[in-house]
Amino acid sequence: MLTVTRLKTSLIGPIDLSLEPGSCTTVSGPSGAGKSLFLRAITDLDESAGTVSLNGRTKDDYPAPLWRKKIAYVPAESGWWAEKVRDHFVDSPDLPALLASVGLQEALSWEVSRLSTGERQRLALVRALQLDPQVLLLDEPTSALDPASVAQVEALLKTRVASGNAILLVTHDPEQPARLNAIPRRMVSGRLLQDQHQRAAQ
């Protein structure tokens, strides 16, 4: 579905990676390894060399805004440009259900300045899911959540995987890949280490 070939920026790479529809891949590794930069390069927020393609069409075949709707990236800390939570969301019919699935059905009328870090994380995820993307790039989406909320978010992610999305998720939680049935990958010094499957095959 998403194919990354020799992706390189001035700070990371080259990186090769392939995501299948209905699969989840996690990336872990020390801070500063370039995990966030990798996601930024895929979503084309940073300049990069190499190719990233979605179902056979490269990112340069798409206008950048359309690409970012198909490959939704949720950074570790999202930006909020208006005062009210409501102003950051499109009024779509699926919004109440999405908010309820992360336990924040009341949040639309709140003010952004009063949100906790964990609330911001979950709202940013909902905001991205509203785009109905094919691929989700998530940077530590559960780092500030209590265990009950982590379970809620992970359940939500599993339904997205079941419906055919591909997810690439950065995490520092060693248990999370297993809980998400994910393919675990490690990133060190701007490069992805070979995964266990490839190593076993060699």
């Binding site: 970012r68 930006g79 440009w81």
Partner: peptide, 22 residues
């Protein structure tokens, strides 16, 4: 100072003109 806010809008598929409007 508002890089995160601008990029948040870009990530939602808005154009550079929309995202920098504020």
């Amino acid at each position: 100072k508002g890089r995160r806010e601008v990029e948040a809008q870009l990530l939602l598929g808005r154009t550079r003109w929309e995202a920098t409007r504020p």
